[in-house]
Computed example of a mutant assay.
Amino acid sequence: MKSNPSRTLFRTLFATGLLAAGLCSCCPKHNTLTQAEIADGWQLLFDGKSLDQWKDFNGDSLTMPWHVVDGCIQAAGDGSDLSGYIVTKKQYENFILDWDWKLSYGGNSGMLYHVVENPYFKVPYVTGPEYQLIDNEGWEATNAPTRLEEWQKLGVDYAMHLPNPDSLLVNPQGEWNSSRIVCDNGHVEHWLNGRKILEFEAWTDDWFARKNSGKWETAPEYGLAHRGVLCLQDHGYPASFRNLKIKELPRKAGREVELFNGRDLTGWEAYGTEKWYVDKDGLLVCESGPDKKYGYLATREYYDDFDLTVEFKQLANGNSGVFFRSFVEPPVKVHG
Rank of each mutant, 00 (worst) to 15 (best):
D100A: 05
S50T: 15
V332F: 03
R180Q: 14
L154Q: 10
Q35W: 01
Y277P: 00
V156N: 06
A144P: 06
F323K: 10
K292L: 12
L18G: 12
V328Q: 00
Y271S: 01
R242K: 15
D40W: 03
G254Q: 13
W66N: 06
E329G: 04
A15H: 14
N212H: 13
E221P: 05
R147K: 15
A76N: 12
D184N: 15
D205V: 11
K153S: 07
L265T: 05
Y222C: 06
N243L: 04
D157R: 01
L18Y: 03
G194R: 06
V285R: 08
Q173W: 04
K90A: 15
L133W: 05
E93G: 07
W101C: 02
N177D: 11
S25I: 02
Q152E: 15
H335F: 00
L103R: 00
G194Q: 11
E137H: 11
A298D: 03
H30W: 08
L162D: 10
K280R: 12
V229T: 12
G79C: 05
M111Q: 13
K196N: 14
D135W: 07
V182K: 09
F46M: 01
E150S: 12
D60C: 04
D100Q: 10
N261V: 09
L23P: 02
Y131I: 07
E93N: 10
C231S: 11
E217T: 01
R180M: 13
K49G: 03
Q132I: 01
V310C: 13
G41W: 14
I197F: 05
K49D: 09
G71S: 11
K196Y: 11
G194F: 11
D52K: 15
E150L: 15
E201R: 13
F10D: 05
R210H: 12
K292S: 14
G336Y: 09
G223I: 05
Q43L: 13
K2F: 11
P28Y: 02
A75Q: 07
I197E: 06
K313G: 00
R210C: 05
T16K: 08
A144L: 10
F121R: 02
L169W: 09
D70W: 05
I38Y: 00
L224N: 04
K215V: 02
W207L: 01
Q53Y: 06
G106Q: 08
T88K: 06
L82M: 13
G110C: 01
D52V: 06
V229D: 04
S50H: 15
G138H: 01
V156P: 02
D60Q: 15
D135T: 08
T127S: 00
T142Y: 13
S167I: 02
R147P: 06
R147M: 08
G71V: 11
G318C: 08
F10Q: 13
Q173Y: 05
G228V: 01
V156C: 10
Y237C: 09
A298F: 00
W101L: 09
S179W: 07
L154G: 06
E93C: 11
E258H: 14
P220M: 01
N31T: 04
R242L: 08
V123Y: 06
P330C: 07
S25G: 04
F327I: 00
E217H: 00
G214E: 04
F57P: 03
W203F: 08
Y277Q: 11
L13M: 14
I86S: 05
C286R: 05
